[in-house]
Amino acid sequence: MDVAYPVGLVVVAAAIIIGFTALVREKDDLHRILLTDLAEILALVLIALVATDLAEALILPGLVVGISELMAVSEVYIAKEGLRAPTGPPFRIEVMNSAPGILALILVAYGIVLSGFTGGVIAAVGAVFYFMCRGHTEQFELIETVSGYAWAFWIGAFFIFMFLPGYWFFGVMIAGGAILLKVMAKMSLVGTMRGGGPDV
């Protein structure tokens, strides 16, 4: 460990120099977004070099911050360039008529069993698939509302942990349920948001 850490640091420093040199030379905005996204991994590598349970926990906020900034900035890019989703013939295959109900049900149910982050992702895949096949216009508002409530629940759970630590079990349950809802809502929103075209 004593030798590994400085060596790791030097490797990361070399990677930062390479990545940022690429950014200095790159003039195209879209490529800049991609390079930035790539370079953000270096922050996670630096945290991971600490190699404790704490570092494991800190990677998650680091990752989420990177993803959210990427989402906001790419949306700004789309607005800046005035890009539009291309319109074409709708994408239809037979399975999209018969499968969505049952597949979405299975995925959402399995996601709820898993719960937490992973569960949220799996449930969201089910929801995205369902909306993809059945259209999504009216569900949009509903998902946003759910996401807002989940956020509030999460904050509530945090205050239970901090001020009523004896009730930690309720805190875990509330936070676990909230994060399932939150991840699921966010994922399915992101999945359906680009649906300006007829195919999604």
Binding site: I16, R32, D37, A39, L42, A43, I47, L49, E69, L70
Partner: peptide, 20 residues
């Protein structure tokens, strides 16, 4: 936005080095 994204590298990196 790009600069703010880039800035998270030294920001989190600095905190990680402090921790290590």
């Amino acid at each position: 936005g790009i600069v703010a994204m880039l800035a998270s590298i030294p920001l989190f990196g600095g905190a990680a080095i402090v921790l290590a």
